[in-house]
């Protein structure tokens, strides 16, 4: 009786979930269409749009640039965010919490405002349209992600281990390297993956602070979407989305393995 009453919300929930996921995947069939305009494959599938994509120097260069920017931003954000998370965790003072709130701001402030701020400052600093400028901006935007994931790991970490290490004479940096970091690895890794994806997908800030010499994949996708109806854009969308999914999958597998090894 109770079970049957539950059927309707369950069915509706699955409809909502399909509404979330299925439309996002429409780029997959469109990318293998045999037509030359955005359409679904008409009987047979064709890989010509992927061939176009991988023989186009513009798309290849955007792909490489996006990978460089996302990789570097992820490293910078992960190091900076982890340091802050460990510091703030150990400080646990009121001033520390104010600092934490400030460091979380890039997550809260709408990206259009962040884009404006970077744009305005990057011009006099000469960082417009440069790798350094985009990596720096993306690192700042990704910092809160790392701060959150590493802080979550630290919440489960027994701070007496840190005290034991210090009281046995280990200096702060040895304690961090040998005691704290090994125990919060899952959080650090999660932060690294999330900040990679954040930078990989980021478009609003890139629209403002990159123009010619740095032209990331989302940036080229954005132009392609507005200008033409060439299915190559769908193929590029497939690449973008597949990389994100692969990063998430890798994270999930590693997280599962980590939790299994700690359980043993």
């Amino acid at each position: 009786m109770k079970k049957r009453r539950f059927h309707l919300p369950l069915a509706l929930t699955w409809i909502v979930l399909l509404f979330l996921i299925v439309p996002s995947l429409v780029a997959f069939p469109v990318s293998v269409t045999n037509q030359n305009y955005l359409s679904f494959p008409d009987g047979e599938i064709s890989w010509k749009h992927f061939e176009n994509l991988f023989s186009s120097p513009e798309w290849i260069s955007s792909f490489v640039q996006s990978a460089i920017v996302a990789f570097c931003s992820s490293i910078v954000a992960t190091i900076a965010g982890s340091l802050c998370a460990v510091g703030l965790w150990r400080l646990s003072s009121q001033l520390g919490e104010i600092v934490r709130a400030i460091l979380l701001l890039p997550l809260i402030i709408p990206s259009i405002i962040s884009a404006m701020a970077f744009y305005r400052l990057w011009i006099p600093l000469g960082l417009i349209d440069s790798y350094a400028g985009l990596i720096l901006a993306h690192s700042i935007l990704a910092l809160p992600m790392v701060l959150i994931t590493v802080s979550a790991s630290l919440a489960n970490f027994d701070f007496r281990l840190e005290q034991a290490s210090r009281s046995l004479g280990a200096p702060m940096f040895t304690t961090i390297r040998r005691v704290i970091i090994p125990s919060i690895q899952p959080g650090i890794f999660a932060g690294a993956v999330f900040s990679f994806i954040l930078s990989w997908d980021e478009i609003v800030v890139a629209l403002f602070i990159s123009k010619f010499s740095v032209f990331t994949l989302p940036r080229r996708l954005w132009n392609g979407m507005r200008e033409n109806t060439d299915p190559t854009v769908a193929a590029a969308a497939v690449i973008l989305i597949t990389t994100t999914l692969a990063a998430m999958l890798a994270y999930n597998l590693l997280a599962k393995r980590a939790s299994r090894s700690t359980a043993q």
Binding site: P23, A27, L221
Partner: peptide, 17 residues
């Protein structure tokens, strides 16, 4: 997954649909 799929790709998908 839907939380992490790029807003650009999702918007593009809606446009195609």
């Amino acid at each position: 997954i839907s939380f992490w799929i790029s807003v650009l790709v999702r918007t593009f998908s809606w446009l195609m649909l």
